[in-house]
Structure formats: structure tokens, C-alpha cells
């Protein structure tokens, strides 16, 4: 069986046409088992750190939900005041993926958002630009053009976002096209269908193939944690996405009811830390969906700060995906600067 997998995996990764044609899926192995990982290694000619993962040198410990939530609540209870609040909010902007992912997005909407991304507050030039804008592939070229010379990156969702259930060749093609149009970063979704069916190999291969398709572009893997049912699954999916080559793991699409939460942020930070310990590779964390207030943003920064440490407090390794967060952060910053409470109409709606 494993021999067959090796052959097919080699082909799959070398020739994307073959991926859907495999005859020996590893569907019935328990989620998270070392055996599955061994199979993954066998089939994908992996680098050393994936071998270590498969050899059991990487533990995927269980997660106690109550304990995780209690710790997350304790971290979000940190009281962030004055200078530390201002610094955190500025960092939150620098780490922000300003996002619009609606079927109604137009070039005009995207251009306006890009302008905001570069200069969030026209009244305060000291406010930094955001890290990136995040749009659908069709709008990547518009965004790229609007952001020329600004340093703000263009991220695109791709790969049959938000379900991820298009045919793999189509998904890979979508990634390549987004990159051709100028995307610096690609956000794909985990194949939850395969993952929840226990076909970790397939979920892994989809990511690995997407990574190949990305080339130099950064790959963010959206776990859609709110759909995975248990924290154990979120941890396993995190480890799988990182082992398969994701440069970032990301909580959510923003398209379902449960998005980024402090426990998800904490758990995924712990998974990233584990991965780093095992491999020396620093994977980034992107939190997305439902992040609307400045307070939420510093709470997440606290979680990352106390779990992963200051190394991760940089746009290279931390992102906040949001559409409406920016103005609340700007309002808070203005309040800190002036000592007066602010009104929404003084901040641009783009």
C-alpha cells in the first residue's frame, strides 16, 4: 500500500493532473495517528522536518477544551494601557490584512480600500500602512495597480474559496492565475471534506500541491477552525497544514458563524511553537473573521506575545484579517492622542 502511495504521490506532486486519480486513499486511519504521518512522508518525498513529524518525533498532544478556554480568557484579561496600548494598536495596523471578500466587490470598492490601506488616516500621516489587502483573484490586478510602490502586499484567496471543494486542478490553476495577476500571498482553505473524512493524506497533498503552485508567493492555509468541531482537530489540522508547507495558518474564512476566537488563536500559536521546536521553521499566524474592535486586536497580540514571543510580533509572522477593524483602531489611537472620545464619522468609510 505504501509503495503505491509513494508512486502516486511522486506523480501527484510532479504532475498535478494525476492527483485525483489515486487508487489507495489512506481514508481509514485514525486522525492524527503516526501511521498516517508515515504514509504522508512516504508519498511526498518530504524534507527532513516532515520525516521527523512522521517518525513520531512530533507529538500532537490532545487539547483540553476547558483548560484552553480558561487560559485564553486569562490572556485576554490583560489590562493594556497607555503607551503599551498605543504601540499595540500601531502594530495591529502594520499586521492587518485589510479585506473585502464579497460577491459585490468592484474595482471601485477595491481601489478605495487600497487607498485606505496605504494611508489609513488622512489626518495623521504617522499612522502606518497595513500589511496587505485581501481580495478575490478577479480583483488582484486592480489592487496590485492601486498599491504600486506602497509596500502594501496583495493577498488573494484562491482554491475555490471558501469551501475548497473545486477540482484540485482548477484550484491550483486559480492560485497560479492570482499570482500571475500580481498576488504576493495566497490564502487557501484546508480541504475539510477530506480532513473530516479522515483522509489526511488528501488534505495534506492538496496543501502541498498548492504550495508548489504558489512558487515564491506566501501560502496561508485557512483551517476554518469553527467548522472542525473540536480543538483536537484544530491542533491536528494546524500541524498538518504546517507540515504540508503552509507559510501561515489562518483561523477562518470569515464566512461562517464562528471565526477567530482567543482559544483558536492560543491553540494555533501553541501548534506553531511546537512546529518551530521540531523543525526550526517559523510559521505565521493569521486570525480572521469577527475581529472588529481595537480591544480584540490587542488581546490577540497578548496571546501571541505570551505564547510565541516577540519574534512573532511582526507582519512577517502575524496578521489580522479584517474589514471593519481598522477604523476602531484608528479611533482608539486618536482617543489616546487627544484624550477625547471620538465619533465614527470622523474616520473614512471606504
Amino acid at each position: 500500500m505504501l509503495g503505491g502511495l509513494v508512486t502516486h504521490a511522486g506523480e501527484a506532486l510532479g504532475n498535478e493532473q494525476m492527483v485525483d486519480d489515486r487508487d489507495e486513499p489512506v481514508a481509514h486511519l485514525p486522525v492524527g495517528s503516526i501511521t498516517v504521518m508515515a504514509a504522508l512522508v512516504a508519498r511526498s518525498n518530504p524534507p527532513d522536518w516532515v520525516r521527523a513529524f512522521a517518525a513520531g518525533a512530533v507529538r500532537i498532544p490532545a487539547v483540553d477544551a476547558v483548560g484552553l478556554e480558561a487560559r485564553a480568557a486569562a490572556l485576554t484579561g490583560r489590562s493594556i494601557k497607555k503607551a503599551s496600548k498605543i504601540a499595540a494598536l500601531r502594530l495591529a495596523i502594520e499586521c492587518m490584512d485589510l479585506t473585502t471578500l464579497e460577491g459585490t466587490d468592484t474595482p471601485g470598492k477595491v481601489r478605495a480600500m487600497c487607498a485606505k490601506a496605504v494611508q489609513p488616516d488622512p489626518r495623521d500621516a504617522s499612522i502606518p500602512s497595513v500589511a496587505a489587502v485581501c481580495v478575490y483573484p478577479e480583483l488582484v490586478a486592480i489592487a496590485k495597480h492601486s498599491l504600486q510602490g506602497s509596500g502594501v502586499k496583495v493577498a488573494s484567496v484562491a482554491g475555490a474559496f471558501p469551501s475548497g471543494l473545486g477540482p484540485l486542478p482548477t484550484r491550483l490553476d486559480e492560485i497560479r492565475r492570482a499570482i500571475d495577476a500580481g498576488a504576493d500571498e495566497i490564502d487557501i482553505v484546508l480541504n475539510r471534506s477530506a480532513f473530516l473524512a479522515g483522509d489526511l493524506a488528501r488534505a495534506f497533498d492538496d496543501i502541498a500541491a498548492s504550495k508548489l503552485a504558489c512558487g515564491a508567493a506566501h501560502l496561508k492555509v485557512i483551517l476554518e477552525a469553527g467548522e472542525l468541531g473540536t480543538y483536537d482537530n484544530v491542533r491536528r489540522a494546524s500541524m498538518l497544514a504546517m507540515a504540508a508547507g503552509g507559510d501561515f495558518i489562518k483561523t477562518s474564512t470569515g464566512k461562517i458563524g464562528v471565526n477567530a476566537t482567543p482559544p483558536f488563536a492560543l491553540l494555533m500559536s501553541e501548534a506553531i511553537r511546537d512546529h518551530f521546536e521540531q523543525t526550526g521553521v517559523k510559521v505565521g499566524l493569521k486570525l480572521a473573521g469577527g475581529i472588529r474592535t481595537a480591544k480584540q486586536s490587542w488581546q490577540y497580540l497578548v496571546i501571541v506575545n505570551e505564547t510565541l514571543g516577540p519574534d512573532w510580533l511582526t507582519p512577517h509572522l502575524f496578521r489580522l484579517g479584517a474589514s471593519s477593524l481598522l477604523n476602531d483602531v484608528l479611533m482608539q489611537l486618536r482617543m489616546q492622542a487627544t484624550g477625547l472620545y471620538q465619533r465614527p464619522d470622523d474616520f473614512t468609510v471606504d
Binding site: 490583560r78 489590562s79 493594556i80 494601557k81 497607555k82 503607551a83 503599551s84 496600548k85 504601540a87 499595540a88 502594530l91 511553537r273 518551530f276 521546536e277 517559523k282 497580540l301 497578548v302 506575545n305 510565541l308 514571543g309 516577540p310 519574534d311 510580533l313 511582526t314
Partner: peptide
């Protein structure tokens, strides 16, 4: 992990 003596953002809590 990976702490380096560089000009990192230090999240001090006031």
C-alpha cells in the same frame, strides 16, 4: 522560540 537580540517589537505592558 527564536528569540534574537534584535530590534524586535517588545510588547511591554504599562
Amino acid at each position: 522560540p527564536g528569540r534574537e537580540p534584535s530590534s524586535l517589537f517588545r510588547f511591554e505592558y504599562a
